[in-house]
Design a protein around this nucleic acid. Structure first.
Lengths: 201, 201
DNA sequence: CAATTTATGTCAGTGAGTGACAGATGACAA
DNA sequence: TTGTCATCTGTCACTCACTGACATAAATTG
């Protein structure tokens, strides 16, 4: 990897860090692109060459985790039903986020803190999910053997379960990857208890 | 109802109609607030006194239907389980939208056409849902007798099922209230077949 | 070192959204 | 009818997110 590429990665992470810090300190609305760019000593125009919008920089890590999730999903064995495969892939992608160096972990926790305190990002999270919806739907249909309304139901139920697992927490709860994995298991148990066997076949 | 109140209702509907027509004719992004306001012969500043944002005017009817849904829900008998009560309320609020005069119906169809062709509104629809989430959650917890993670699961599953029922359709399908009610019944049947009895008790 | 590609800064511009103030217009009582 | 009051509206000035165009600087490649 050349020097140019390394510089870009560094600038991207610096922009994310500066943005998360500003958002958490003085609020999302009160923070401007000019401030973020100034803190990284970069022109505001450059910010928009890295992120398509102000919201995108707040959701940058979430977008990354989506890619990891999709990679894990396609590596799941064929024997698993669609729902089980997605649940396992989500568990693995969560632990993958928990690894990495100190800075990575700090960014992850800051992102969770930001999303917890600003419900306005819910819509953005949903937008991210939707971007991968077609690929997920194709994977579900492939595993089920048919593409019908039930495939949509399976997908919707999974994204819903994942979302509830991430959102429902006491305010004072630590939101690191381990805590989220535990919460995910909790809601998956409820879903399993509510659904008939082979409902997603 | 006084003259002032009637004028406001008229202006509000005129703004919605002008906005929907412009959005459908030349696209959402290409339409400006100035154009909408000019077509109603009102200042752009006045537009923002009726709607908080450009997106709000596109979702205005959806926001109205949410209110109807909540009213129907609180009128449901105590004997119904949370999920059944919400499903019935949704059916009734859909038929309520189907009634009304010619202009009301036209607005409803235009809104559906707009949302079908512009996936960027999905996030906004989700934002609307969330605005009522607390009230729905309270109603579910009240009917179940406890407020725990399962209440969140019931709520999330219902909103998800409703969303899939509204979204999943062939592109050429007519999107009037009757067609949407039929689609809702279809997805509710799948949900019922997938879930164990008394899962939401 | 020279040629080419690519990232960045500067500049000018559009459009959404907001606060403040003044004037217009219904609502209401005498 | 008239005058007072509350409320709605238009105008103006402003902030900020976001974009296209062009010139410059820096990295890559030979």
């Amino acid at each position: 990897m050349g020097l140019r590429e390394r510089k870009k990665q560094k600038t991207r992470l610096a922009l994310i860090d500066a943005a998360l810090d500003l958002f958490l300190e003085q609020g999302y609305e009160a923070s401007t692109i000019d401030q973020i760019a100034a803190n990284v000593e970069v022109s505001p125009r450059t910010f928009f060459r890295y992120f398509g919008s102000k919201e995108d920089v707040a959701l940058a890590l979430l977008a990354d985790s989506q890619d990891i999730f999709l990679a894990e999903l396609s590596a799941r064995p064929e024997s698993e039903s669609p729902f089980v495969a997605m649940a396992q892939a989500m568990r693995l992608s969560l632990t993958a986020m928990g690894e990495g160096d100190e800075a990575d972990h700090a960014r992850f926790v800051k992102t969770r803190r930001l999303l917890d305190h600003h419900p306005q990002f819910m819509a953005g999270q949903r937008r991210l999910m939707m971007a991968n919806e077609q690929r997920l739907l194709a994977e579900i249909a492939r595993r089920r053997g048919t593409d019908d309304l039930r495939s949509h139901f399976v997908l919707a139920l999974f994204t819903t379960v994942a979302r509830v697992g991430f959102e429902y927490c006491r305010p004072d709860e630590v939101r690191d990857a381990d805590a989220m994995a535990a919460r995910l298991d909790e809601i998956l148990a409820i879903a399993e208890a509510s659904l008939r066997p082979d409902w997603d076949k």
